[in-house]
Design a protein around this nucleic acid. Structure first.
Lengths: 218, 218
DNA sequence: GGAATGCTTCGACTATGGTCGAACTATGAA
DNA sequence: TTCATAGTTCGACCATAGTCGAAGCATTCC
């Protein structure tokens, strides 16, 4: 059963670290989980055997990342449930408010600003939401092209364009999928925000946040 | 961490069984998980402490259900990820079809027709249900008086007028309390049905069932 | 009243699996 | 070559917690 894999504290810590979307080495993950490399090695074999993670060997390094978006989504949902039930992991630091404001959820924007983006797209009729499915409208397609995204390139990917993802802190839906990733990349490119080192926090600078709020008005 | 709770095979089996949406007893869950009742009892305390499940004591039974939709959603996601086809065998209630159709529950009507009565009262705005509480509305009071029940006499009893009771076979709420008893008595008096000897079965005659279904329409 | 059922608590047993030390392989650098 | 780093495998240890038998409590049935 897959739950048992996620259940172990050490593995949970590693998976949480991988939620940043970055590929981490086995040693880094060991440090993150507070265990020795040999123990981590054992855990990583199991995670990989269950197809929760994927590895890429490069030289003498072994880079680990989550196997796919689904895994990230399930982990996010689990964290949300844990947060709601009051079983939040210890480790609540000063980063917490920033995390709530804007963070990376595997590869797309989450937190208050992530919800804001989703709501804005919906309010303006750029996406149509039906249950758990999200579809980009014609007007929405025009909008994202205008925003500077190569929509045709995204369409050729096998990955779904729009996916809904449940937010951990706000308990609201936000946008995942290849479009979600592309939007976040574009936000970096525009210089509105940057990733904090060793953290899931996304820091918007003053001007970037103003532009963001103006572009994605509700 | 919540993942550890879901991780254990026994608990996973129980939660899977509860995914049907029905409330199950502690013993049923023990059987479902293939463990003894005392082990199940221990697991259930933990699940409840973590707010994953909710219990409702009724008589000597303890009905367990998932705490909320979020829990179900996460479990669903996990199972989808595990690509595990959930063969959730729902073992529903009594084998005797007659018992399932209509029977006495202490002193009021239960079974499919009991659920029907409850649903009808609710659909017509005769009762208002809030959580586990049920209240008779003004229109409902008029209705039961019209049906031939001395409501004022019931009001003088110390016993609660309306109580919700969880159905044994259908696992749905139905009406208990002094009003539930009075309604069943009235059904006897009208000659719609009678108690079978040495059984909890209530036999409606053909005309009686027709009248019942017409009176308590949904 | 007594019998039967549903469930819990207690205590003891046991097995799974997480953990680390030590030794080993593999890649890269000097 | 020699050394250093990254990671693995092996073996042993041991704590956690899942398990059940026995006994007890609570409720309903007859």
């Amino acid at each position: 059963m897959i739950g048992a894999l996620i259940g172990d504290p050490a593995r949970a810590n590693m998976l949480t670290a991988l939620m940043s979307g970055k590929a981490l080495t086995a040693s880094e993950l060991a440090a993150e989980a507070g265990i020795t490399p040999q123990t981590a090695s054992s855990h990583l074999s199991k995670l990989e055997a269950a197809n929760l993670t994927r590895q890429r060997k490069q030289g003498r390094h072994r880079y680990i990342s989550l196997a796919n978006d689904d895994v990230g989504g399930v982990l996010e949902a689990l964290m949300g449930l844990a947060a709601k039930c009051g079983h939040v992991r210890a480790r609540t630091g000063p980063r917490d408010p920033a995390l709530r404001r804007a963070r990376v959820c595997y590869n797309h924007l989450a937190g208050e600003l992530g919800v804001r983006l989703h709501d804005s797209l919906k309010a303006n009729g750029f996406v149509r939401e039906e249950g758990e499915d999200i579809d980009l409208t014609d007007r929405g397609a025009a909008f994202v092209r205008e925003f500077g995204i190569d929509l045709d390139a995204l369409s050729t990917l096998r990955r779904p364009l729009c996916l809904s993802c449940l937010d951990w802190s706000a308990r609201r839906t936000h946008l995942a999928g290849s479009l979600g990733t592309a939007l976040l990349d574009r936000i970096y490119t525009l210089g509105w925000a940057r990733r904090e080192e060793n953290s899931r926090v996304i820091s918007f600078n003053r001007k970037g946040e103003q532009d963001f709020l103006k572009t994605f008005a509700v």
